[in-house]
Computed example of a mutant assay.
Amino acid sequence: MKKTLVVFLVILALPIMSFAGKLTNEEVLKGVKKANVIFDVNVNKPELLLFRLKLIEQTVKDLEKYNKRGDIVVAIRGKGSLYVTKGNKYVDEIELPVKKLIQKQIKILAAKNIKLVQCGIATKVLGIKNDDILSEIDVVDNSFITLIGYQMKGYAFVDTMFGR
């Protein structure tokens, strides 16, 4: 009985297994004219923040490869906000090298005409002066409102919080 059940389950799984791995980005994007996207960036570790920003850059490149890039917005909030500040006063000295890499990545994204916004609630909670946020980034009052607004306008929402 067990052997028959296993054979039956394998036969049922064959169509699923044959489909696995065959779906391409090109197929997924079929029918999409332009992909307007808002990325919610809320990570607490500077290395993860840098990784997420690089992943966003790669995602934009991939959308461009398929000629599907629309407007892109990156909304930064949480402790990652400390690393998008001018000067050295908001982070420990040991974190300055990764902060510089994050700032370089911010400049790369801004040069690609990606809109960058910083949550004003996060700056207030973390004691960051809004004037100390990098010039490539606009400070908004509340990034939740920003996320809501862009989603209501049809922007795809991408949550980058995994592995915070």
Rank of each mutant, 00 (worst) to 15 (best):
L5V: 14
V6S: 02
V7R: 09
V7D: 12
V10F: 10
F19H: 15
L23T: 08
L23S: 10
E27N: 09
V28K: 06
A35N: 04
A35F: 06
N36Q: 07
F39T: 04
F39L: 04
D40Y: 13
D40R: 13
N44L: 10
K45L: 07
P46V: 14
L48Q: 11
K54N: 02
I56E: 09
Q58P: 07
Q58A: 15
Q58R: 12
V60D: 09
V60I: 03
D71Q: 10
D71P: 11
I72C: 13
V74P: 00
A75M: 05
G78R: 03
G78V: 01
S81M: 02
V84M: 03
K86T: 01
K86R: 15
N88T: 08
N88C: 08
Y90D: 04
Y90E: 11
E93C: 11
K104T: 05
I108F: 14
A111N: 13
N113R: 12
I114P: 05
I114R: 13
L116Y: 00
C119G: 01
I121R: 06
T123A: 09
L126S: 01
N130L: 00
D131G: 10
S135M: 09
E136D: 06
V139E: 12
V140T: 06
V140F: 02
V140L: 07
S143K: 05
S143A: 12
M152H: 14
K153Y: 11
D159F: 08
F162N: 10
G163T: 03
R164T: 15
